[in-house]
Design a protein around this nucleic acid. Structure first.
Length: 929
RNA sequence: GGGCGAAUAGCUCAGUCGGCCAGAGCGCCUGCCUUACAAGCAGGAGGCCACAGGUUCGAGCCCUGUUUCGCCCACCA
């Protein structure tokens, strides 16, 4: 029990902090054998490992809370459930953070040396890890921390090396000198996926290249600074100028070097001047031209983005400064023939935003096509599903057009490439450790590759590396493949697709059965929430302000699968209000029962030992310590939901009891359906509606006279149903709002253990009661109509009005008993008496098979009432006309399903009746008024 | 240049198999501090379901086209 008191207003800050530790203590997140007939296959979810140096952002909160909802739901259903946590070493991100920290201390990272630098990274990782784990626990995620891994720990490193070695030996990993994306700020190569392309306004310059034989040609370029790296000028073979130009040479402006003009079909004749400069070392397209024609490939830019010695007068300048400089010089020499604005798609590094430099260097690659083939089949033959389904096409399109994966990074923090080169004969061997002896020359001296692997080269093993692969462990056999992966569509290529390939290659199975893509959170302007934009609210601060449960509920309810969500702090208030509502409803139910004394409230004998008295919350606590009481309650809960309520024992269920139990059962069914379809948002909505509108607004209001009244039987039944449904609601709420659910569960008598391990409610056929649903529905409808009437006629809220009821069937049976009593309560009626016809000077409400009349007395003027009735008549006429037209349409009557036609006919009868009674009311009123 | 998504109340969004009068939260207006809750209760206003055609007895939903916005992919210098 927490310090929060049921007498106080809800304060999540006092309720939430204690529970996570209790759950851990109970080892509630480690998988346990299935119960409730929940099959043999465990429900396994892999947490997308957050960057260890990062901190939680709203995207994590959304995605992982959705996971938690499914995990908690399945766990409560009785399925063996495992949600596997881990953190990612995040190569570039972490290295940059540590570098920045060192520079702030005046230390230049590269001078520190590799080993020392890595040691600093580990220190930083240690601190950072603690921070992010605390954050994850704050949100309440039910992860099995006993199985936590780190993508750079020893076991994962072994798996990474093993995978590299196997791929290398199979010829799927190769080293080569190719153009790759290079980040000059991070001084490393990148994969295609790490480059974001954006449309940019640039300039297309036209530069005059003098022909050696005299005259000149014009060449268009957006990158004049690379002129120093040009090795040729290309023209399309079909260009009419080809015959005259090919074979000629031009003299490079400023540089003076002579280069050939050659023909290549990749040139677009329509673009620019139809002549293109070829810089193989600094342009991907030019690289291919260079390959085709066997050209030199001089690198003129250094890894840090500055022009190198080959750039002559530009040497030492940053590439953009060099651009300005060369333009100035070209201009001065009259070689700049023109310039015009030009939009181009420019690549930047997704981590640091620097403009990518296409760069020729030696890198390691994974040959992807052989791996992709299996990954395509797995989706095409249905072993792997996407929700929403359209993402399947995104995945397949990428797979079909897959490019080789550049996996080497010129960094220190990461998995060092397990390649050892013999210093004697240059033989390269892939191995877990330095080989003792060279297999070719017998040498003993080896040098390990200096580079590390792309972070994703460890992440793509997550479906099996946490389980100890390549060792065959019990966990590997039991929990691979996993069941569900929930993640954002932005990492389908980075991660999802690659995991599929890795699992198929090394495990022979898909890594998971379902992929649920959650939406991306956007701010009010539609921008993706990101740390760099600073437009993402700080989740912990949000939880401090509103409670973790509130944030969780809001995120889940407001984010349908695969749809981007515009997020606003205000949305979280919906969750906070709901939490508050739940708390207050529990206060009402628990305190009311306690006030009556638990023995009375629950029909236990006076010997049960539950003290009665005024100190409600304490009474409640003391009561739950009583064994006899606890057992009695527990039995009752069980009876209630295993075999329907023992109605007689409770003194008989009243209409509202039967109705709310029916509504509860409907909700249980709906939630099961929605969860099955992976629509957690819909499940949350159903729960919200049930608890707020049905349980609180109608049911609890209905039973107040009973639980505050004198009739013991009636009181008792009300208490029991209210308490039972409170307990059941705690279970329903637990996946979504686990802290509050746990707190209230612990305070509800008869509950045992933790709610997160309680059995999730299942539908109970015996609770269904169509008749109660119909009668209560009628009462709600009449209440609504009477309330509107009161409001429109300006009856003071405190004033109770007498009402008369007329039934067309003549029996008045429907309104004579419980229905009438409930109506009097909700519509604030002083009395409800039968009447044959419409009394004079009364307002009428037409409902069901009869009408309700409220004598106006001196309350209102008749004109207002006449006006109101006239409006209602117009509406009825409109409805009727529309319906008549529909039924007069032979096409509809002949072709629509019989049930639909019947329903419409029935509705017409009702409407005719309804209208007639309005007309009667009006004419009587005219007669009198 | 290709592909995908969105367009529904003032705002943010649901709307599942085409079938009652299109819903919710927030905001707005009116009235209520009614013994769980003013973080609340009751009532209300507010909609050419982007536009134009089509299919159908019937369309927010299916088809075709158009417009606007967003995203992804792509080696036009």
């Amino acid at each position: 029990m927490n310090e929060a008191n049921l007498a106080d207003a809800y304060d999540p800050g006092r309720v939430e902090p204690v529970w996570y530790a209790r759950w851990m203590q109970a080892r509630a997140f480690t998988p346990r054998a299935a119960t409730d007939g929940e099959g043999e296959t465990p429900f396994v979810v892999l947490l997308p490992p957050p960057n260890v140096t990062g901190s939680l952002h709203m995207g994590h909160v959304l995605s992982s809370t959705i996971q938690d909802v499914f995990v908690r739901y399945q766990r409560m259903r009785g399925r063996e459930t495992l949600w596997w946590p881990g953190t990612d070493h995040a190569g570039i991100a972490t290295q940059k953070v540590v570098e920045r920290g060192l520079r702030q201390q005046g230390i230049e990272p590269r001078q520190l040396g590799r080993e020392e630098f890595i040691a600093r990274c580990w220190e930083w990782k240690q601190r950072s890890h603690e921070h992010i784990v605390r954050q994850m626990q704050r949100v309440g995620w039910s992860l099995d921390w006993e199985r936590e891994y780190f993508t750079l720990d020893e076991e994962r490193s072994h798996a990474v090396r093993e995978v590299f070695i196997r791929l290398y030996d199979k010829g799927l990993v190769y080293r080569g000198r190719y153009i790759t994306h290079w980040c000059p700020a991070c001084r490393t190569a990148l994969s295609d996926e790490e480059v974001v392309h954006e449309e940019t306004q640039a300039t297309l310059w036209t530069v005059r290249y003098p022909l050696v034989q005299g005259g000149s040609i014009e060449v268009a370029t957006t990158r004049p600074e690379t002129i120093v790296g040009d090795v040729a000028v290309a023209i399309h073979p079909d260009d009419p100028r080809t015959a005259a130009l090919v074979g000629q040479r031009v003299r490079l402006p400023l540089v003076g070097r002579e280069i050939p003009i050659l023909a290549d079909a990749s040139v677009d004749m329509e673009f620019g001047s139809g002549l293109v400069k070829i810089t193989p070392a600094h342009d991907a397209n030019d690289f291919h031209v260079g390959k085709r024609h066997g050209l030199d490939m001089p690198v003129v830019i250094d890894p840090d983005g500055r022009m190198n010695a080959l750039a002559g007068p530009l040497a030492g300048l940053d590439r953009f400064a060099a651009r300005d400089e060369i333009l100035r010089r070209l201009e001065a020499e009259g070689l700049l023939a023109g310039q015009k604005p030009h939009t181009l798609s420019r690549g930047t590094h997704d981590r640091c935003g620097s403009v990518i430099e296409p760069y020729l260097s030696d890198q390691w690659f994974v040959r992807m096509q052989p791996l992709a083939a299996a990954a395509i089949r797995a989706v095409e033959d249905g072993r792997l599903h996407f929700t929403p389904e359209r993402w399947r096409n995104v995945y397949l399109h990428w797979m079909h057009n897959i490019q080789d994966w550049c996996i080497s990074r010129q960094l220190w923090w990461g998995h060092r490439i397990p390649i050892y080169t013999c210093k004697g004969c240059a033989l390269m061997l892939a191995a877990h450790a330095a080989p003792a002896q060279c297999t070719r020359c017998g040498g003993h001296d080896f040098a390990q590759d200096e580079d590390v692997l792309d972070t994703w080269f460890s992440s793509w093993l997550c479906p099996f590396s946490p389980m100890g692969w390549p060792r065959v462990t019990a966990d590997l056999e039991r929990y691979h493949p996993t069941t569900l992966l929930v993640t954002g569509p932005d990492i389908i290529f980075f991660w999802v697709a690659r995991m599929v390939m890795a699992s198929l290659e090394f495990m022979g199975t898909v890594p998971f059965e379902h992929v649920l893509l959650n939406g991306i959170l956007r701010d009010g302007q539609g921008r993706k929430m990101s740390k760099s934009l600073g437009n993402s609210p700080e989740p912990i601060a949000l939880m401090d302000a509103h409670g973790a449960d509130a944030v969780r509920f809001a995120m889940v309810m407001l984010s349908p699968p695969g749809q981007d969500t515009f997020f606003d702090d205000k949305l979280v208030e919906t969750g906070r209000h709901f939490a508050n509502k739940i708390w207050n409803a529990a206060r009402l139910v628990l305190n009311a029962a306690a006030r009556d004394g638990w023995d009375v409230a629950l029909g236990l004998g006076a010997t049960a030992g539950a003290p009665a008295g005024a100190q409600a919350p304490q009474v409640f606590q003391a009561a739950s310590a009583s064994d006899a009481f606890t057992q009695a309650c527990a039995g009752m809960w069980q009876d209630a939901f295993a075999r329907a309520l023992p109605a007689e024992a409770l003194g008989g269920l009243r209409l509202e009891d039967r109705w709310i139990l029916h509504a509860y059962d409907e909700t249980v069914r709906a939630i099961a359906t929605e969860m099955q379809a992976l629509r957690a948002n819909e499940a949350a909505s159903r729960l919200y509606h049930f608890f707020w509108d049905e349980y609180c607004a109608w049911y609890l209001e209905s039973i107040k006279p009973r639980i505050y009244g004198e009739d013991i039987d009636s009181k008792r039944t009300g208490h029991v149903v209210a308490l039972v449904l409170l307990a059941q609601s705690c279970k329903l709420l637990s996946p979504f709002m686990p802290f509050l659910a746990e707190e209230l569960w612990s305070r509800t008598p008869g509950t045992q253990g933790l709610v997160l391990t309680a059995a999730f409610p299942r539908p109970v056929a015996a609770l269904r009661d169509a008749e109660a649903a119909e009668r209560f529905g009628l009462m709600m409808q009449a209440t609504g109509a009477l309330r509107t009437l009161r409001s429109e006629l300006r009856v003071p809220p405190g004033k109770k009005a007498p009402a008369l009821v007329h039934s067309a069937s003549g029996t008045l049976g429907a309104w004579s008993g419980e229905t009438g009593e409930l109506l009097m309560l909700h519509a604030k009626l002083a009395s409800l008496a039968p009447v044959k016809g419409r009394p004079p000077e009364s307002a009428a409400v037409v409902v069901g098979d009869g009408a309700l009349y409220v004598p106006l007395g001196a309350l209102v003027d008749l004109d207002a009432e006449r006006e109101r009735l006239t409006r209602e008549l117009e509406k009825a006429d409109g409805d009727l006309a529309r319906l008549e037209a529909k039924l007069a349409n032979r096409g509809f009557v002949d072709k629509a399903p019989a049930a639909v036609v019947d329903a419409e006919r029935q509705r017409r009868e009702q409407l005719i009746d309804h209208r007639a009674r309005i007309v009667t009311s009006l004419s009587e009123m005219s007669g009198k008024g």
